[in-house]
Design a protein around this nucleic acid. Structure first.
Lengths: 177, 177
DNA sequence: TATTGTTATACTCTATAACTATA
DNA sequence: TATAGTTATAGAGTATAACAATA
């Protein structure tokens, strides 16, 4: 049976192959004596719990640099793609243009990035890291490396490979592609 | 080498075993021609992208019932644990007590749950599903089953098992346990 | 007309302090 | 004193509409 059948009080669909059901059962952590039902086996629930915990650790790790996950991702993306315009960076990160403008305001204000008007299209900005931004990113990368090592502590590297691969496929499936 | 080394422009550490590096490379989706660097290989980034996409699909799936993920999880938890007090439910779901009170206000207002003062402790409420809440949850479970099937579309059931297991271990590692 | 970046705004989720009523 | 639930509030993150400047 499928894991989703676990949630149904009605008759499950037995035409699909099983496996997930065992994971659901295995994932049943009492959680303070409460019956979590099928929740731990729902991909979205497991994803959300892990993601919140990982971001909490990330935020604690980079608090001393005052960098949030999205800000770190911007700095890294700008290093790998210097001279790009805002829209391209925002789209690559899945951040709405208005929200990205606000982010860039702050990174600029803090002297980590620099916006210069493009000479080929005066509507758009060319984004670059300042020297301070480069240094900040280097410091961040060291802390992120520690953070990654910490959250991967109990997971075999080959399993992390599979995790990233499966997350990519789920992302595409959920995005309808 | 470690996956975190991938983020460094400097020479990677070849003393550690590989695997993650391949996943990083494989996950390098051009994303509109931009070089995403090590981002796709960072567990937090892959987690976040997948989680956002999955929740977006979940919200679209349950929009007709006007149920958000957290509200659905409350209804399911109450069905499996009727007669529990708010604090227990909130803690099991990792929701702050003040925010949970607001959630319960709305579920009550909509006639899906009922709070009755405990006869053994007049400070606390006993939470139960109303008949309407039971029906709404049944409808939700059917839609969530479709949602789950959709996001698992391209993933082998055995891989979902491993996914849920690995997410649990990452959750514990990130939570420092 | 379309695009780039911006402003304004709003809604959700999350987090904390402080209050009340009970224990 | 401590606990259950609440109120108020504030901060992120995310979403859309509308605008000015430029193409």
């Amino acid at each position: 049976m499928t894991a989703t059948d676990e949630m149904e009080s009605a008759e499950p669909d037995r035409t699909r192959k099983g496996g997930a059901a065992r994971a659901v059962a295995a994932a049943h952590e009492p959680a303070g004596g409460l019956d979590m039902g099928a929740l731990p086996g729902l991909v979205g629930y497991a994803l959300r719990r892990a993601q919140v915990a990982v971001f909490t650790d990330f935020n604690a790790s980079l608090a001393e640099l005052d960098l949030r996950p999205a800000q770190f991702s911007v700095l890294l993306l700008v290093r790998h793609n210097p001279g790009r315009k805002q829209s391209d960076l925002a789209e690559a990160l899945g951040i709405q243009r208005p929200n990205f403008a606000t982010m860039m305001d702050e990174l600029d204000r803090r002297g980590l990035t620099r916006r210069t008007t493009s000479r080929t299209d005066r509507r758009s900005y060319v984004i670059q890291l300042t020297a301070a931004g480069e240094r900040r990113l280097d410091e961040a990368l060291a802390l992120v490396a520690e953070h990654e090592a910490r959250i991967r502590r109990d997971v075999d590297p080959a399993e992390v490979d599979r995790l990233v691969d499966v997350l990519g496929r789920i992302h595409r499936a959920a995005s309808g592609r």
